[in-house]
């Protein structure tokens, strides 16, 4: 099959879309992949546990 002509012609100078840039950047992915669960699961979870009241 043929390389899609107008696509490959324009590809040289076309900027990479931001989402593709993110997906092509391993260290960004590591960063968000650790940040999300740390905030939503671990930190929020620990806050919940700490705030459990002592029995009266």
């Amino acid at each position: 099959m043929q390389r899609n002509d107008n696509q490959s012609a324009t590809q040289g100078d076309e900027p990479i879309p931001p989402m593709q840039q993110l997906l092509d950047n391993p260290f960004m992915l590591v960063f968000i992949g650790v940040l999300f669960p740390t905030v939503f699961y671990i930190l929020w979870g620990i806050m919940e546990i700490i705030s459990i009241p002592a029995v009266k």
Partner: peptide, 8 residues
């Protein structure tokens, strides 16, 4: 196969 695959 495309350098810019986000637009496929």
């Amino acid at each position: 196969s495309q350098k810019i695959w986000w637009k496929e």
